[in-house]
Design a protein around this nucleic acid. Structure first.
Lengths: 207, 207
DNA sequence: ACAACATATCACCAATTGGTGATAAAAATA
DNA sequence: TATTTTTATCACCAATTGGTGATATGTTGT
């Protein structure tokens, strides 16, 4: 009995907190971060905004907790952790980049988070960025730096350009109907061109 | 008399309109587009907001006119239109990309405009994008498509990735103190790495 | 059953938002 | 000079914003 009632109470509070987090995601998905107003969040959650202050401390803390709850990078790294052959990270790099290109395109919430990192300077966003850097460091220091030796930094720069380009193109394709460099980034054909270019550039970098 | 003319210009419609446009730029530079509130714009312009409605029709029209007034792409293309050697556009591509990397980093207003294009879907922003596509088409159709022939689209994809990457990295460097792929994008050293990688990738693409 | 506590709602606040009609003040025109 | 038009300011509006104290409702432990 004690356990049952205790769980019940806990579940209610947690359920309400979750409703707020879900509301953030929903608004983020539909209106973008500009639409994240206190009253709207509460209305979307179906709860009084006072609870938001009680449970999270305020809008900013709620948003921070939402961002923290989206552990995008651990998802990504697990997903793309495939066979690790001894080719200096060539296969791994390709797989990672192509996987990112697909993942970011499909995950609109992640797009908003990325965009957010270009506009605002939140702690929680910086933490995500740090997380990304840490994951990247494993690839670089463990595999590609030893392989490229004196050209190690140039390889990092290539990856930086490609990841950035992938982010930008995916977000651009989502919010714009326009082409980019004459390529339709929403069509399978256009996206294939980008994928081939990614693969091509990695190959050339490893030559 | 000259003094009368001076008084004349004190009450000048065009000058007042310009004050509003300047206010948009100033706010865009300091607070970003989220700070573009009607009252703030009027206060920054040092004029009554009513004039904004009289002269432009409203905030949106004012902003559209500001965006239109920033003909970034014609500036860029004139700037980077250097010597056009007969190397299939290799030198031109390099110069253009490196020039962009520098230009966007220094021009914070342009960064905001680019970001804006990833968030909102304004007519005036679409027009800028169309402008960019038109300028690009001249390079592609006139020079690189004939050079790369069946691989023409892959070259376009490479340029798309590099331009996008340049945009993203420049904006990222401005709003974040964090590194990207272990590179400090604010330092001369970090930026040199990116520049070398751009040059390297173009070279490889033309091999 | 009952006190103590957790959960949730409500009414209300001050500040800010976008927006407008009335009107003053200057300039142009007659 | 007197009148009309342009330029600019002011006062005010309704709606929305973020935020809080008082209070109700339900749950738990004794």
């Amino acid at each position: 009995m004690e356990q049952e009632t205790a769980v019940k109470t806990l579940r209610n509070k947690e359920k309400s907190k979750q409703k707020f987090l879900d509301a953030v995601e929903k608004i983020l998905h539909t209106k973008g971060f500009a639409g994240l107003k206190v009253n709207d969040i509460a209305r979307t959650a179906g709860l009084d905004k006072k609870l938001m202050y009680n449970y999270f401390g305020g809008k900013d803390e709620l948003i921070d907790e939402y961002i923290r709850s989206q552990d995008f990078w651990s998802n990504v790294k697990n997903e793309s952790a495939g066979p690790m052959v001894n080719d200096g990270g060539k296969t791994f790099s390709k797989t990672m980049l192509l996987s990112q290109f697909d993942y970011v395109f499909k995950n609109k919430e992640f797009q908003k988070i990325i965009l957010w990192g270009l506009i605002e300077n939140r702690k929680s966003l910086k933490k995500l960025a740090d997380n990304r850097e840490e994951n990247g460091a494993m690839l670089f220091e463990g595999i590609t730096d030893p392989h490229f030796k004196e050209n190690a930094k140039r390889y990092r720069a290539v990856i930086a350009l490609l990841i950035s380009g992938i982010y930008y193109l995916d977000i651009y394709a989502t919010t714009n109907d326009c082409t980019f460099c004459g390529l339709d980034l929403k069509s399978v054909a256009g996206r294939s061109e980008i994928e081939e270019a990614i693969s091509f550039l990695i190959d050339k970098t490893y030559e």
